[in-house]
């Protein structure tokens, strides 16, 4: 009897963390015209950014097919007592939850618990970590799932994008559309709303001002339980931001991760983001 945790490639947890905890990661799909790649399986983050920057036509992305979830679930549920907790990118952003739910229904809905993190990247990753830790402590699956369902209101992302273009091309612009009306070139600051869809929280004209602003916005969510820095091709800035965050939260393990190619497609090169989990009150 075991509880196994499944997530998807957008969760951005470091591979060693996922591997050590036995987390199974199902890759989303990236399509560069007629070429298909499994997110982070067939393409490294660096290869991807090079393609994204060089290519004229940005790639499109797609949820994993239900069949892949089915195969993973069947493989994990070997013994009658086994259960799966499957934690994924917000349904507001991706059809991944839909593929996972279809597969869960086809395999064994009672033993597979699909959780909508209502977030993405490390926002989803924090739920995965929580599930891993609780499962290791021997908590029953239902109790873990019930706790995970309480987490999304405390999970947040604050991101500085270099441009609105990639959000717009990917169709995920949501309420950030309101920022389109301007002739000035701006860099949007975005966050995720309660369901995980993208909402605007500010705009700046220079990157330096944006980096300052994301830090100020993060401070509004103190005290924090977890925090990480996620970026797309902006390594130096991410290093500096993570360093600065470590000074502010000396006792915290600040993760620094390149965003998955799928997420990078929608946020665009230059993206710099904080993912955080507020401490519970």
């Amino acid at each position: 009897m075991a509880i196994r945790i499944v997530t998807d490639s957008t969760c951005d947890l470091p591979e060693d963390v996922r591997r050590a905890a036995g987390v199974v990661t199902v890759p989303l799909r990236l399509h560069f015209q007629d070429e298909v790649f499994r997110d982070r399986v067939d393409l490294t983050d660096a290869e991807f950014v090079a393609r994204l920057t060089a290519g004229k036509v940005p790639p499109s992305t797609s949820q994993p097919p239900p069949g892949e979830f089915e195969a993973v679930y069947r493989d994990l549920l070997r013994d009658p007592g086994d259960e799966v907790i499957s934690v994924h990118i917000a349904a507001a952003l991706s059809g991944t939850i839909s593929s996972a739910s279809i597969a869960a229904g086809a395999v064994d809905a009672r033993r597979i618990h699909v959780v909508d993190s209502r977030s993405v990247s490390l926002g989803t990753g924090f739920l995965v970590l929580e599930a891993v830790e609780r499962a290791a402590r021997g908590e029953p699956a239902e109790q873990i799932v019930a706790f995970l369902e309480t987490m999304p209101p405390r999970v947040g992302i604050i991101a500085l994008l270099d441009t609105l273009r990639f959000l717009l091309l990917g169709g995920r612009i949501g309420k950030v559309r309101a920022m389109l009306g301007t002739a000035l070139s701006i860099k949007p600051l975005i966050a995720l709303g309660p369901d995980g869809s993208v909402v605007p929280v500010g705009r700046v004209r220079s990157r330096a001002a944006g980096i300052k602003r994301v830090t100020e916005l993060l401070a509004e969510h103190r005290p924090l339980a977890r925090c990480g820095v996620v970026y797309v091709g902006a390594d130096d800035d991410a290093v500096a931001l993570a360093e600065q965050t470590r000074r502010t939260y000396p006792d915290m393990d600040i993760l620094r991760q390149h965003a998955s190619p799928v997420l990078s497609t929608h946020a665009g090169p230059g993206t710099l983001a904080y993912c955080y989990l507020e401490a519970s009150r």
Partner: peptide, 15 residues
């Protein structure tokens, strides 16, 4: 189609 489903419409088509 289940293994190769792509996107929302592909998933629904597979169903």
């Amino acid at each position: 189609s289940l293994m190769g489903a792509r996107g929302n419409s592909g998933v629904i088509l597979s169903q």
